[in-house]
């Protein structure tokens, strides 16, 4: 698991434990042996606490938003000149990749792709038939970045590969029976 995936999982597990903990705790306070004789019942000042709860939650959300919104994939390496451009045409059930863009009406050109390590490259991804996905898996088989392959549109994805090696491409949008077998790869040197 790469660090981003791990962070996501840890964040979720921590939240899971907190939520389950709160529910179990609240449940236990409601059992007769815990309510009898304690002299107090219910939450004191519930609306004040509700307001506090609301403010804290809103603050957390706003912080998360400001931290994450600038990191959208749409601007990855936007200020750099790509060293290579790869044209990708997805179709049931394979990817055609080339340094040349194809001509309409002819089969898309397909060639083995080699990309320079440490330099920005750009993928221009489209589809010839249905919607497909274009997900790049690193040498450890972890998903590092993706975009969709949609008929009639070209999605531009920029990336910089630091590690040399074989990267795989998988289709992540269900496109029919052989969807799970739709893959390709390229080399980073």
């Amino acid at each position: 698991m790469n660090p981003q995936h791990l962070n996501i999982l840890i964040l979720f597990i921590v939240m899971l434990i907190i939520i389950v903990g709160v529910f179990v705790y609240v449940y236990r306070t409601s059992l007769p042996r815990n309510t009898e004789g304690s002299g107090q019942s219910g939450l004191s000042n519930p609306n004040q606490k509700r307001f506090l709860f609301f403010v804290i939650l809103a603050a957390v959300l706003v912080i998360l938003l400001t931290a994450t919104l600038p990191k959208t994939p749409y601007y990855y390496f936007a200020n750099e000149e790509p060293a290579k451009v790869v044209f990708v045409v997805a179709r049931q059930f394979s990817f055609a990749m080339s340094y040349q863009s194809g001509k309409p009406g002819t089969p898309p050109p397909n060639e083995a792709i080699e990309l320079p390590a440490g330099k920005t490259v750009e993928f221009r991804v489209t589809s010839n038939d249905v919607n497909h996905g274009f997900a790049i898996y690193d040498t450890q088989n972890q998903l590092i970045v993706q975009t969709q392959a949609m008929p009639g549109y070209v999605n531009r994805l920029r990336w910089k590969f630091e590690q040399p090696g074989h990267y795989s491409i998988r289709c992540l949008e269900f496109c029919g029976a052989a969807h799970a077998f739709m893959e390709s790869s390229f080399l980073v040197k």
């Binding site: 529910f23 309510t35 304690s38 019942s41 219910g42």
Partner: peptide, 12 residues
Amino acid sequence: FSVLAFVFKNSI
């Protein structure tokens, strides 16, 4: 919040 406050320290 309402569900939790409803149960919290209330004999249910």
